[in-house]
Structures are given as structure tokens and as C-alpha cells.
Write a protein that binds this DNA or RNA. Sequence first.
DNA 1: ACAAAAGTGTTTCGACTACACCCATGG
DNA 2: CCATGGGTGTAGTCGAAACACTTTTGT
Lengths: 321, 321
Amino acid sequence: MVVSSIPIEISLDAVIVAVTDDAPRLLTIDGPAGMPALPSGPFQSRDRTLEMALRRWVLDQTGLDVGYVEQLYTFGDRERGPGSLGSADGVGSDDEVRQLSIAYLALVREGSPSAGASWRDVYDFFPWEDHRDGRPAMIDEVILPALQRFVDAGGDESRFRAERVRMAFGGPRLPFDGVRALERYELLYEVGLLFESAETRWRPDGGEAPGVASRPMYLDHRRIAATALGRLRGKLTYRPVVFELLPARFTLLQLQQVVEALAGIRLHKGNFRRLVEGAGLVEGTGELARTGGRPAELFRFRREVLGERPRPGVGTPWVRA
Amino acid sequence: MVVSSIPIEISLDAVIVAVTDDAPRLLTIDGPAGMPALPSGPFQSRDRTLEMALRRWVLDQTGLDVGYVEQLYTFGDRERGPGSLGSADGVGSDDEVRQLSIAYLALVREGSPSAGASWRDVYDFFPWEDHRDGRPAMIDEVILPALQRFVDAGGDESRFRAERVRMAFGGPRLPFDGVRALERYELLYEVGLLFESAETRWRPDGGEAPGVASRPMYLDHRRIAATALGRLRGKLTYRPVVFELLPARFTLLQLQQVVEALAGIRLHKGNFRRLVEGAGLVEGTGELARTGGRPAELFRFRREVLGERPRPGVGTPWVRA
DNA sequence: ACAAAAGTGTTTCGACTACACCCATGG
DNA sequence: CCATGGGTGTAGTCGAAACACTTTTGT
């Protein structure tokens, strides 16, 4: 209940996700220095709730009427570089303006946004997250070697660092876990493999880290997007959010492909179908859709499942690509 | 990136939880009108991160050095009555001060807070959440009848309301789910069974709703606490947070009782022990503890489990009381 | 002795996995 | 006739649920 007297800027930032043609996509605007940025709106008092404010300015700015919306996280670190973990650790000057960002995750079925906003592939920002065509080579060729140097240079912290790396990227007896997208992002940033900001790069040998080929975003927006990706992947498994990204009627393959796009892995077709039907998540309409091969039945989401199962969602029994 | 020009108060509110003698407890301060309130601190720019700011003022105010901290949610509804769902739906006056609360969940092992703060039993605020001695009678005697009236008076919305009630409190083929504490709280508030604020009470017959015997909190703080309870219950199952509430060495019964206290249900002893040991969550020290009966071995948390299992936590195989 | 708590074994059950195979259509 | 995608059967595995039972201490 204390009135804050320092200068503060508050924004509502939105990670707006859609899936088009097997590709998970992110709505971005052109930020300073030509960098992609998340759509961002003002915190205004005329809306009753934060979520309503968000919906309204997204509609105003992009013409998108977002469906599912959930609050992600509130970011308020002083250095709004994406990591806020690695670098400056002292108590800095008090005169700067403090940025507070209340970030939301929104899902839309598709979209034709108005000028100024464009859809970009999520995995352009996080190429190490897409395992649908096998484990990306960059992980073993670039990322893990760099992280190993980071571990080795850790001194007392070595063991702790090794544990972090293992938790983030998996290892023997511990599979890669899609949900830990944020941990991976923060690790890569901290180690200097990403180029949002050059200052915090970690150079074990004094040289330049080679870096990971990926698209940066304005300020810490990529960090926010990583938060969203991890959250969404987790939510998939216990809440029927996929259907927010699909048309009202869809084939099971479409459904599977959207899940695969978000989870970043391939699923086993036969099992997927049975699980999803067996869980009562979908029901067949009689209709058929013409596809490449044999026509497929169109299914629809069964809302009733919400009152039947405690945690209705699509698990991830996966398969090597 | 838009500068907000309306008057805003930002606070960092903390839901600080401990478990003492089988009772989950909440640290509260004396709020206006003698109501319990959550400890609340200023948003200050001199701390580098929000979490650090929180830790610092909690230490200053209460003397508590909190261990585990996680951001819960940011509350910014215009009416910071706890529900913000039921009542006023128009666009109100712009001249009021907007309250923004960034809420955190913190876990401590025990505590001797300084003057002004006191520990209260969590279930004093949420008596319908404690099922350790069987399903609380108030659910069937007071709550469900009132909710049924709410459903019946719903008109077009009846079906939707019935679904909400069923999801919140369970029903045939759908067990009561401890994690949905927030949904239950919001439902009860909306229906007028709680007395934070008299205005938003729903009276199907124009009379007074009987209400549920429970302790209110200042403003929407009980809503924030309900958010914390649900989140904590969920987290228990996939992250080893329980150990933040226990001493370094503990018996398996102690561990079980802390889990039971938070989950609000009784667990099956034999299975609990095997699950928790089988999952590699704990390891025995040789030492024994004198207890009421046969001495029990003291166990410790196995940190290594973090790098071994994807989602280390204590499931909730429960048992009737 | 008996209450109180610690601790173990065994069986059943169901969910998910892996693998293998058949079906229908369009080019 | 074969590529593409749709769709089914079945056996094995693993974790958890249910239930029953033995052991060791304090009073």
C-alpha cells in the first residue's frame, strides 16, 4: 500500500501466437533499430481489468480479436536486457526510469493484422527448440561445447553450472524437456551466445563467442517470448488450449501437427489419435475433408471434457524424426 | 513502451507460507478495520530485480529471510474487491487511483516475525479447502445448496454456471481437485457467500445469503492467497518445493504431514513412503529420531533428483479420512 | 500388554508405449 | 500401382492404488 514515487513506465506486452501451415508464429512489430518487438500497449485506467485493456489495444492496433488470453509474468528488472541474471550486480543509479512490463500470452486462430505488425516463425528466434526434424545440429556443434566451456570456467560454481546445463538441455538419463525453454534461453543469453546486447557476453578465452544463429528481439522481448513458449508447452499437456489455434472443425492430423509445432517434437500418429479420442477431447462430426490421400473425418472439440477429466490435455508421447 | 500518466500505486505483496505442527500458516499483518492483510512493500527502484526488492522489505519488515520465492500474479483490476468478476461492469470514473499489486509466493521454514505480523492458519480463510478429516460438512450443507440456487437463477447461463460449479467442486465422476482453490474462491465470492465486501453479494430471493463461516481479509488479499494456495498445491506435484518448508533432516512422516497440510488431503502412508523414496527425492541419513512410537530414520532431500527426473515432486495418491 | 508409529510385500489396475499392420483415395 | 495420409490391434511396461501385514519403541 505504499505509493511509488519514482518514474515508472508500465506497459502491457502481448505474445500473440498462431499456427499456420505447421509453423508456430508470433506477431511482431518493428521496434527500434529494425528489431522485431512484441506488440505493446499502455496501461490505462479506463478498462476494468488488465486483460480487457490488453484485448482492447490489441484490437485497436492490429485488428486482431484474440481468443484465449492469460497473464504470463511481470518483468521489472532494472536492466531490462533479456537476462538480468549475468551482468551488473551492484546497486545502480536511482535516476533512470523503471520499466515495468506486464506480459500476456494470447492465442489466435489465424490473422490478418493491420499494417505495422507481421507474423514471424517462432523458431527463427529459438532454432534450438525445434526438434521435429531431429535434434538440431547446432545443439551439439555449438551450444553444448560453449556451455561446457562455461561449466569448466566456473570454479567453485562448476557443479552448479553443470547441473543447470543438464537440466536445461537434458543429458544421459534425462531427456530434453520442451517446457524448459526459458531456462535454455537464459543460459544461452548468460553465456553470450545470443546477441541482444553485446555487453554481457561471456568470453572464456577473451575472444568472441561464435554465437547461435538466431533472430534477436528488442530489449528483453525474446526472453518474454521464451517464457511464453515454455508456458504454452506446459499448458498443452493439461488444458485443451490447442483448440484455440484450430478452426472449429479439423482433422486429427491437423490437430497433431499443431501440437507438434508447439511442442517442437514429432508425435506417434497411432497413439496420438487414440489418446486424444480416448480422453474424450474430440468427437467426430460425420463430415469428411479432402486431403492428400484418403479423406479424413472432421472432428470437433468436446467442451464437455472440461467437466469430465481433471486435467484434459494432450500428452507428448513422442517419436524420433 | 507507453508512459502511463494516470495515478498508480504499485505494491509488492507477499503470501508467506510456513507449516507448523501440521497446520499450513500464512503471515499476516493488521490491516485497516482490524482485518488481516498480506504483508506489502513498496516497489522501489534501488533493487535490481523485483524479487530482490521483495526479499529486502520482507526482511526489513518482519525479520524473515525467506527461502523460496516465486512471482504469483499481477492484480490490477479497477475494483480491487476480491472478485472483480461479478459486479460493476461499466466503465467507471477515471479519477480514482489505480492499484497495481505484484504478488509473490514465499516459503519459509518457520519463523519468529517481528511485531505487527502474525501467523494464521490458512484454513481459517479457506475452511472448505481442508479435507484431511473428511469432506467439510459446510460444502454439502451450505455451499453446494447456495451454488445450486445460483445455477438455477442463471437463465441462459445456467448450463455454463453448472459447469463452473462442477469444475470447481467436483461431482459425479469428477473428484474435488485441490488445485482449483482460486476457482472455488471466486465462485463463492461471486455468489455472495463471503463477506469481504457486502455490495457484490448475490441474493436470489432478495434476502441475505447465509454465508460461509470463514475469516475475511483486507481488499482482495484473500483472493491473492487463494491464488497462492492453488499454485502451491499444483507445484508440489512436479517440483520439490515441500523441502523449503522442512528442516534439513526430517522423518518421512513429517514430510508426509507437510504435504497433507498443503494438499488438504490425507495420503496413504505405505505408498507415500515408497513413492518418495522410489523417486529418489530423499535419502536416509543413518540417524534416528525419537518420536511417539518406534524411532524413525531421518531423511534428507536429494538435490541430485533435479538432474534425474523431469518433474520431481510428490504426487497425491490420497485416501479417505 | 498395548498404543503409536515405522516400515515392508504383494496384487491389481490402468495409462501410455512400441510396433505392426490394414484401408481408401488421387495421380 | 504406388504415394499419401487415415485408421486399427495388440502385447508389453511402468507407475501408482489398494490392501494387508510385520517391527520397534515408550508407557
